[in-house]
Design a protein around this nucleic acid. Structure first.
Length: 419
RNA sequence: GUGAUUGUAGCUCAGUUGGUUAGAGCGCCUGAUUGUGGUUCAGGAGGCCGCGGGUUCAAAUCCCGUCUUUCACCCCA
C-alpha cells in the first residue's frame, strides 16, 4: 500500500476477500432471478468500435464526448471500452435478425468511464443489467421495473426508492424542447450559469439542475410531460397502473431526466439514501436504437454493483455473512501423517466437504490455531499412534470434545461428521 | 476537466517549535515441560514515513513537482 507501484490505476480497484464474497452473492442471486424471468446471459466484448457507442448513446452526450476510454489501435481503428451495456447488447441483438427483435438478455460486466473518481464513482465499475427487445408495450416496462425491484429484494436491500417519468416519443422531443425553452425564457437571467448554457444545448438538463434557484423556477413552469402527445402521457399511466396491480409503488418525478439519447417513453431511477452525491443505484428505461434502417425497440435497466454494495452495507448486509467457513481441518503430526492427510483431504473434498490443512511441518499448537482461525467445525488429528492403529481423533471445535474413531469406517468419514 | 483533501508496519492510527536507533493498538510468529484452538502472560518479526527534486549541519516533519486516496462540481449506475 505504501508504494503505488502495486496500486491499480486511478479509480480502479482490485476486488478481493472478504468483499468478493458479497459480489458473488449479488451475481449468483441475480443469475438465478433472471433465469426465473426468462433472461439468458450475454457476454459482449469490453472493447467495441467507437461508432457502436456514438450512434446509440448519442454523439453529443457527456458519456461519449468526455467520459469514454476511446483510442485508436495499431490498425488505425477507432475503439472504446464500453461505458455502459446497452449499446453493445443491441449491437449483438441487431446481428441476430428477427431473433434479436424479441429477446431477453442480461449481463454482468465491467464498464469504463474516465471521470474523476468520487463516492459511488469508479473508472472501472460494474453493472448488472437486462435488455428486453420487442414492440413498445407498457407491460414490458412494468415487468422490467418489477424484476428490478424483485432483485433488490433478493439481495436484501431495503430503503430504496423508485422514481419514474417519461421522455415521450421521438416526435415529442422538439415540442418539449420548444415548450420548455419558451417557458424558461422569461426567467433566463435568474438561472445559474450552467443552465443558461444548457437552455440551448440540452434544455432537459435545466429541469434536473440541483441549484436551488433553478429548481424554484422549474417548479413554476409546466412539466415536460405537458408538451407531449396525449398517447405518450397515456403510456406512462399504463405503466404505473400495471405496477400498481403488482403492488409496486413508484414515485412520479417529472424532474427526472435520463441523459442518454436512446431513451423514449418510460424512464426510471432507483435511489438510495446511503449513497453520496451519486445517489442512483440503478437507472432504466425504454429505448429505441436505430441501427441502419432498423430501429430496435427495447426496455432495460442497469444497476451499479459498487453502489448496490454501499447500500447493502447500510442495510447491515455484509461480506462476512457470505464468507465461506466451517468444514474440517486436518492436523498432521509427522511427515507420514501429512501424506496420509493429503489423501484424506482429497476424499473429503470429493464429497464436497470444505477441508483444509497445513502443508508444512508446523507444531500442533500452530495447526490448531489455524483451524480455529479458519472457523473449522471439526478437526481431524492424526499422528504416529493413529496411523499405526488406523484411527483418527475427531475434535468438535465448538464443544471442545473429542473422540477416537476408526478411520476405515466410511460412514464415519462422510456421514457421522455431520456435513 | 474544475475545486478541495489524503498518503507513516498486514490493518487502524500517534509522531510535539525540523534534532540521536520512527511508536501504539489490533493482527502475525514463537514460547509458558514431551501431541490440542479460542482467554491470559512473556518474547519476537515486520517500516524506500507514496515517489522525485530542493532548503538545511540535520527532514516523516519546511518548499516545489508528481502519483495516489477521499469528497464535491459536472455527468451517470
Amino acid at each position: 500500500m505504501a508504494s503505488n507501484e502495486f496500486q491499480p490505476l486511478q479509480g480502479m480497484s482490485d476486488i478481493h476477500a472478504p468483499e468478493i464474497n458479497l459480489w458473488r452473492m449479488i451475481e449468483e442471486r441475480a443469475r438465478t432471478l433472471f433465469s426465473c424471468y426468462g433472461y439468458e446471459e450475454l457476454r459482449t466484448p469490453v472493447l467495441e468500435k467507437l461508432s457502436v457507442f456514438k450512434r446509440s448513446i448519442g454523439d453529443t452526450t457527456d458519456v461519449v464526448q468526455k467520459e469514454m476510454y476511446a483510442f485508436t489501435d495499431r490498425g488505425g481503428r477507432e475503439l472504446a471500452l464500453c461505458p455502459e451495456g446497452t449499446a453493445g447488447t443491441i449491437r449483438h441483438l441487431a446481428g441476430r435478425g428477427e431473433e434479436g427483435l424479441n429477446a431477453r438478455v442480461f449481463y454482468i460486466a465491467p464498464m469504463f468511464r474516465c471521470e474523476r473518481p468520487q463516492a459511488g464513482r469508479k473508472r472501472q465499475f460494474h453493472q448488472v443489467g437486462v435488455e428486453a427487445t420487442g414492440e413498445p408495450n407498457p407491460l414490458a416496462d412494468a415487468e422490467c421495473i418489477a424484476l428490478q425491484q424483485h432483485l433488490l429484494e433478493a439481495w436484501g436491500l431495503t430503503g430504496s426508492k423508485i422514481q419514474i417519468s417519461t421522455r415521450g416519443t421521438l416526435s415529442d422531443r422538439q415540442p418539449v424542447a420548444d415548450g420548455l425553452r419558451k417557458a424558461l425564457q422569461p426567467h433566463l437571467n435568474e438561472l445559474c450559469e450552467d443552465c443558461q448554457r444548457r437552455i440551448d444545448e440540452n434544455v432537459l438538463r435545466v429541469i434536473d439542475c440541483k441549484n436551488e434557484g433553478c429548481a424554484k423556477i422549474v417548479d413554476r413552469i409546466p412539466p415536460a410531460i405537458e408538451f407531449m402527445a396525449e398517447e405518450s402521457r397515456h403510456y406512462l399511466d399504463s405503466v404505473i397502473h400495471a405496477l400498481g396491480k403488482m403492488g409496486i409503488e413508484v414515485e412520479v418525478n417529472p424532474r427526472l431526466v435520463r441523459g442518454l439519447d436512446y431513451y423514449v417513453h418510460t424512464v426510471w431511477e432507483i435511489t438510495h439514501g446511503a449513497l453520496g452525491a451519486q445517489n442512483a443505484i440503478a437507472g432504466g428505461g425504454r429505448y429505441e436504437i436505430a441501427l441502419g434502417k432498423k430501429a430496435i425497440p427495447g426496455v432495460g435497466f442497469a444497476m451499479g454493483i459498487e453502489r448496490v454494495i454501499t447500500s447493502l452495507e447500510a442495510c447491515g448486509v455484509t461480506a462476512e455473512q457470505f464468507t465461506p467457513k466451517g468444514g474440517v481441518w486436518l492436523v498432521s503430526l509427522g511427515e507420514e501423517a501429512l501424506a496420509e492427510n493429503m489423501k484424506l483431504a482429497r476424499e473429503l473434498r470429493e464429497k464436497g466437504i470444505r477441508c483444509g490443512m497445513e502443508l508444512g511441518p508446523k507444531s500442533m499448537k500452530a495447526q490448531m490455531r489455524k483451524a480455529n482461525r479458519e472457523g473449522a467445525e471439526k478437526v481431524i488429528i492424526r499422528g504416529g499412534d493413529e496411523l499405526a492403529k488406523g484411527t483418527a481423533i475427531v475434535k468438535d471445535m465448538e464443544e471442545g470434545s473429542q473422540e477416537t474413531q476408526n478411520l476405515a469406517d466410511l460412514e464415519f468419514r462422510y456421514l457421522k461428521l455431520g456435513f
